[in-house]
Design a protein around this nucleic acid. Structure first.
Length: 294
DNA sequence: AGCTCGACCTGCACGC
DNA sequence: TGCGTGCAGGTCGAGC
C-alpha cells in the first residue's frame, strides 16, 4: 500500500476535484474497516464543504467547514476513485476519470461521497486495514501525535537523524520504518533509499553515527530518502497491485525500483556486478545488494 | 525501554 | 481444476 508517495499522489488527484465542494450525500458500507466507523460519521460530514485536502505522513486529512477533519488512512489496499457526473469535469487537467456509468458499488467499496457538482468519490479497500476518523485537531490524534518529521521538509535532516540513529541498536532498515523517526517511509522506499545511499539494511543503526553527530553516511541517507520519495511522487507512486491514481491509472515508479522485488536479478549500479538478495527483517522482506551496500 | 512477532483482512501466485 | 501455502504497500499491542 500506500506509502508517502502514493498518498501524496492520491491527495493531488483529489484536491482539484473536491476542494470547495460540499458533501451532498454520504454512504458507508456495513463492514468495519480497521476500526468501527466513528459515531455519526455520515451525519457529521454531510453538508460540509471541503476546505482543503492535506497529507501528514501516510495520512490523508480532509479539512472540512466548521473545523472538522476527516483522518483517512489507506492501510495496505485502500484507494480512492473519482467518477465525474455525466457531462461533468471529464478531462480536467491531465486526468481522465472513470466513466460515470461504472457499477454503483463494488464488494470492497466502503465509502461513497457525492459532491455538490455530481462527482462521486469512492473509497475501496479489500483488506480493510484502512480507517477513517473524525477530529477537530488532527495533530492531536493518537495515531498522528507521535509522528516524526516529514521526510521532504527541512525538519528531516542529518543532525536530527544522526542523533536518533545513535541511540538505536536495531538494523537501520527497521529504524527507517519507525514513524517516530521519520514519518512516511514504508517497506519499499526504505529499501530503495538504503540502496541509493549504499548502506546495508542489516547495519546496526548506531554504527552509522556512533557519536550522534552527522556523518557522511547519514548525510547520504537523508539525501537518498528525499530523492527517492521525490522521484516516486513525480512518477505517481508505485503500483504493485492495489495502488491507483484517482483516475484509475497505475503509478509508474515500480519500473524504476533499484532493488525492491528484484531478488536474484543483477544490481543496476554502474560497475557493480552484485546480485540482489532478499532477507527478512522483523517479518518483512528486505531487498538489497550485498556487494555495494555496506 | 527497545525490539520482534502475531494479529487484523482479502486476493493472488505458486507448487503439487 | 482444485487445494494448500506463502506473500503483499501498515500499524498496534503483547511478550520477551
Amino acid at each position: 500500500m500506500p506509502e508517502l508517495p502514493e498518498v501524496e499522489t492520491v491527495r493531488r488527484g483529489l484536491a482539484p476535484v473536491a476542494e470547495g465542494r460540499r458533501f451532498e450525500r454520504v454512504e458507508i458500507s456495513e463492514k468495519h474497516l480497521r476500526f468501527p466507523w466513528p459515531e455519526g460519521f455520515v451525519q457529521q460530514i454531510t453538508g460540509r464543504r471541503v476546505e482543503a485536502l492535506e497529507r501528514r505522513a501516510k495520512f490523508l486529512l480532509w479539512h472540512l467547514s466548521g473545523g472538522l477533519w476527516i483522518v483517512s488512512h489507506l492501510g495496505m489496499s485502500g484507494r480512492y476513485t473519482v467518477f465525474p457526473h455525466a457531462g461533468g469535469a471529464r478531462g480536467l487537467g491531465e486526468f481522465y476519470f472513470q466513466p460515470a456509468s461504472a457499477p454503483e458499488r463494488g464488494p470492497h467499496d466502503h465509502l461513497t461521497l457525492w459532491l455538490d457538482d455530481g462527482t462521486r468519490v469512492v473509497y475501496t479497500d479489500p483488506r480493510r486495514f484502512g480507517f477513517f476518523d473524525l477530529v477537530e485537531e488532527p495533530a492531536n490524534h493518537p495515531m498522528l501525535c507521535h509522528l516524526g518529521p516529514e521526510p521532504l521538509s527541512a525538519a528531516f535532516g542529518a543532525e536530527q537523524l544522526a542523533a536518533e540513529l545513535a541511540r538505536r541498536a536495531a538494523p537501520v532498515k527497521n529504524v527507517l520504518l519507525d514513524q517516530r523517526v521519520v514519518a512516511g517511509l514504508g517497506n519499499i522506499y526504505a529499501c530503495e533509499a538504503l540502496f541509493v545511499a549504499r548502506i546495508s539494511p542489516r547495519r546496526k543503526a548506531h554504527t552509522l553515527s556512533p557519536s550522534g553527530r552527522p556523518t557522511l553516511r547519514v548525510e547520504r541517507l537523508v539525501a537518498a530518502v528525499k530523492e527517492v520519495l521525490q522521484d516516486a511522487i513525480r512518477a505517481g507512486g508505485s503500483t504493485l497491485r492495489d495502488h491507483q491514481r484517482v483516475n484509475g491509472d497505475a503509478g509508474g515508479y515500480q519500473q524504476q525500483f533499484h532493488v525492491y522485488g528484484r531478488e536474484g536479478e543483477s544490481c543496476r549500479r554502474p560497475g557493480c556486478s552484485g546480485i540482489i538478495h532478499r532477507i527478512t527483517q522483523s517479518g518483512r522482506s528486505t531487498f538489497y545488494c550485498p556487494r555495494c551496500q555496506r
